[in-house]
Simulated scan of single mutants.
Amino acid sequence: MSEQATPLLHRIREDMKLAMKAKEKEKLSVIRLILAAIKQKEVDERIELDDTQVLQLLDKMVKQRRDSIEAFDKAGRDDLSLIEQKETSIIQQYLPQQLTESEVDQLIDQAITESGAQGMKDMGKVMGILRPKLQGRADVGAASGKIKAKLS
């Protein structure tokens, strides 16, 4: 494995150095979590991640934290919820600009038209077109629910 970093990975590593110098413990801790997750995936799958794969990993990390925030809020653990929210905001700095609700709806309509989807049996075709466009920019699960509503 060569150590040629992708632009996103390079940015994350540079931010880690800056966080160390500025003694930003929270940010440094989250960046180390990100880098550890990337390294773990590279070792497990014996590959080098490209920016798209790193974005997928970051997207997954954000989703995990959102699930945790929801669980902590239900349990009345505001302290733990706050920690997860801070981590989420740091991770999101590496994700592309989030799409608005109307932009997501527009992409869904385009994907349905492009795939020629007629009903629920074509859900996979629509998701195949849509997933790369939404990755890291919107909640794919929420978009999936909207697609189901439009196709039924």
Rank of each mutant, 00 (worst) to 15 (best):
L95C: 08
D73W: 00
R32G: 11
L58H: 00
K148P: 09
E48F: 06
R13I: 06
A117F: 04
K23N: 14
S115C: 10
R66N: 15
L99V: 07
K74Y: 09
K23I: 10
E101Q: 15
A36L: 11
D109N: 15
G128T: 03
K133I: 01
A19C: 09
Q118W: 03
D109L: 13
L49N: 04
G145M: 13
D59L: 03
E101V: 15
Y94H: 03
K25G: 10
I90V: 12
D67F: 02
I69F: 03
I47R: 14
K21D: 14
I31R: 00
Q135F: 01
V140A: 06
Q110R: 06
D105R: 01
K17P: 02
Q135E: 12
V62D: 06
D50R: 04
E70S: 14
T52R: 10
G136A: 06
T6E: 06
E114P: 09
K86V: 13
F72T: 11
D44V: 09
Q135S: 11
A142T: 12
A138Q: 02
K25F: 12
R77C: 08
A36T: 11
A143L: 05
E42Y: 04
Q93L: 11
D67Y: 01
D109S: 14
S115L: 03
E48Q: 14
S2Q: 13
T113Q: 15
K21Y: 09
E103P: 12
E24W: 01
T6R: 07
A149D: 13
L49P: 10
D15I: 01
V126R: 01
K23D: 14
L28A: 08
E87T: 02
F72C: 12
Q98R: 15
Q40P: 05
D59C: 04
K63I: 07
L28K: 06
K39G: 06
R13D: 04
R66P: 05
D51S: 07
Y94E: 08
I34A: 09
V104R: 00
A138N: 02
M20T: 07
I112R: 02
M127V: 02
I129D: 05
A142C: 06
D139L: 08
R13T: 04
I147N: 03
F72K: 04
E103W: 01
I91R: 00
Q40E: 15
Q85H: 10
K25E: 14
A142H: 10
S89I: 03
E48S: 12
L18W: 03
A22K: 12
E70L: 13
G119S: 11
T88V: 09
Q135D: 09
A149R: 10
A138C: 08
T113S: 13
D79R: 05
T113Y: 06
L33F: 01
L28N: 05
E103Y: 00
A71K: 07
R11T: 06
M120I: 15
K17N: 10
E24R: 11
T52P: 04
D44I: 06
G76K: 04
I129E: 03
Q53M: 11
K39Y: 07
S152N: 14
T113H: 11
E45I: 04
A142E: 14
M123W: 02
L130V: 04
L107I: 01
A37L: 05
A117M: 05
D139M: 07
T6N: 09
L8C: 05
G116K: 03
G136Y: 00
K148F: 07
K27M: 11
D51L: 08
R11C: 08
